[in-house]
Structures are given as C-alpha cells and as structure tokens.
Amino acid sequence: MQEVIISKNDANQRLDKFLLKAYPNLKTSAMYKAIRNKKIKVNRKRAQYDQKLVEGDVLLLFLPPDLLEKETKKIQPAKKLDVIYEDDQIVVMNKPAGLLSMKDQATEQDTLNDRLLSWLVANKRYDPNVEQSFTPSIAHRLDRNTSGLVLAGKTAQAARDLSLAIAQNQVHKYYLAITDQYPKQGLIELYLKKEGTRALVSDRPKDQYDLAKMKVKTLQQKDGLYLSQIELMTGRFHQIRACLAYLHTPLWGDLKYKGTPNKKGYYLQAYKIDLNDTPFHQANVVEIPKSKQIHLEFNQ
C-alpha cells in the first residue's frame, strides 16, 4: 500500500487525471478497475474517478509496486535562457530565432521548453523529485524562426489560468515584422486553414477556415524595408506570415510564403505582451528591451 498526500500543485484536478500523470505504468483500464474495486481510496473513503482533488487529500493505493513506479524526469544540462520577467506565478522568456519551442521528434533536441525546465531546477524554482504530477511547460509556441516572448506558468494553477487566458484572447500579443514592401495598414480580417506545414488564406468565409484578425501599423522605413508593428487579435497558425503574403507583402526572407530571399531568413518577433486583462495583471505589459528588438539596421 502506498499513501499519497495531495499538494497544492496536485489539487484542482480529477483523480484519474492525477493518477495517469503521476504513475505512467498505471494504464487506464487498470486504474478504473482499481477504483471500482476500492483499491484506490481518497481520505479512506470510496473514490470516484472524476472527483476533484483538494490540497491535503490522502490517497491510499492498494496496487502492485510495479504499477506505482515513478518516472525519472530527465532534465537537460542548463543552457542560456533569456528571462525578461518573472514573479511567483509566471515566467516570460525571449526565444531566439532558430530554437524550437518544443520537441517535434522523439530524438534529443535543444528546445525552449527544456531550457525552461533546466533554468527552473538550477534556480530552485522547481524540484522534479518533489512534484508528483506537475511539470512546468511553456503555454504557447512560436515558429522555430520566429523570435520573441513566450509565457510559462510556474504552478499548476498558473498554467491552467494561462491556458484559459490565451484561449479566450485575453493575452494581447504584439509583433515586429520586416517587409520589403509597404504593407496594408489598419485592421486586416481574413480566413485561414492549416494544411500540412502551410496556412491557406481566403478573403471570405469558407468551410474549415477560421477568422484571422490583426492590426498593422508601419513604424519605420529605410532603404526599401519597412518595420511594422502587428497586433494579433486571433492566434491562427502562421497567421502573420500567411496573411501578409496573401496581401502581396510577405515577410522579407520568408521563402515558404514567397518572400524576397535574404541570407538570414525572415524577421518576425513577438516583442510585447499585454497581460492586463488576465489574472496576471500584476505583470502589466512585458516588452523585450529596445536593444534586443529587431530593427531595420539588422542587415544593413
């Protein structure tokens, strides 16, 4: 028999969700059978698979030891992580262009998410040997060659709140983009559909196409290049890249969307995040320092 005390990061989730995360050897069918047969109890009472766990709950697990073996969490050696903002709930990082947000294959890869975990462990913000079901993770992704701000929750509740705020468009994101043609200004409304590794665009509603909204404001012009701020009002796949290309002003260097080639690829940076409409309003507006923002002199 094993006794488990539910911690703050384990609370506010269903019993079955907790068990599947905490015990990778415990398969779904075996877990539900054990709950039905009273082999899993909460506070010494019969458990329900969908009951919400509360901090301080005591689980009694009358199961074979091999089903209760914990997974050893592999933490990569610490690598550089550019942290722009941190408080008790969230971390905001500046992802460099060329770095994956998360793994896209089973082999070992250098990713922002792994760097985050290494940084949290090294700075004693997270202990994988103490946590039972919670592993910090980035709350959203940027394309590999897009740089800029990425959010992560440091607690389970913060991670849930971040995910919900992003889904409800309460996190306001602003990008900097470089084109070699003057882009359309103001509100842009188009319709996007993901197909493979590209986004298809329509100027009118179509089946399986989702509304994509953003605002464009050109800030600077120099030597035939244009630096624009883009406020995302929806978060579709390749939204900025595909919409600008559809309007005949693709990102300079974005070959996937027929941009003019340059040696260093395209320039797109998530440079500012407004959190005032979220539970994390204490962070206010987080912005990459001016010295790290993309500008028209990058390739001059």
Rank of each mutant, 00 (worst) to 15 (best):
M233L: 15
Y126P: 14
P65N: 14
K290W: 01
M214V: 08
G98M: 07
L164Q: 06
H248M: 04
V58T: 15
T107E: 11
F62A: 10
P250S: 05
L192I: 09
N169A: 01
E231V: 03
P250A: 08
G224F: 13
K45T: 10
H281S: 14
N262Q: 12
A177I: 04
Q132C: 01
L20P: 03
K21L: 09
L187N: 04
G186P: 13
D10L: 11
Q51A: 12
V42I: 07
D180S: 08
K215A: 11
L116C: 12
L227E: 12
Q181L: 01
A245M: 05
R198A: 08
Q132L: 13
L15Q: 10
V92F: 00
S163P: 00
V286L: 01
D127N: 14
A242N: 07
D254H: 08
L100Y: 01
Y271K: 02
A97I: 06
K256Y: 02
Y226K: 09
L162S: 02
P64K: 14
K264G: 01
K272F: 10
Q229K: 09
F237C: 07
N9F: 11
L142A: 02
R115M: 14
K21R: 15
L244N: 11
I178C: 05
I178P: 00
K215H: 14
E131S: 13
Q48L: 13
I188W: 01
L112W: 05
H140S: 11
S228T: 09
Q132T: 10
E195V: 09
E297A: 03
V42R: 03
S228N: 03
Y191N: 02
R44M: 06
P279R: 00
P205C: 11
A78Y: 05
K264N: 12
N169F: 03
D16Q: 14
D104G: 06
L192Y: 03
K21P: 01
Q168T: 15
I84Q: 00
N37V: 09
D87I: 02
N123L: 06
C243R: 03
R14L: 10
I6N: 11
P279K: 03
N12E: 14
R204F: 02
P261E: 10
I6Y: 00
A158S: 11
Q208R: 14
S29W: 02
K263F: 06
Q13D: 10
Q221N: 12
Q170D: 06
Q76I: 08
S101F: 05
T111N: 04
N145I: 04
I166P: 00
L20S: 13
I166A: 00
P289I: 05
K38H: 10
L176N: 04
Q109S: 08
L15D: 13
E131G: 04
K154N: 06
A242V: 08
K256F: 03
N262S: 06
A30V: 11
G253L: 11
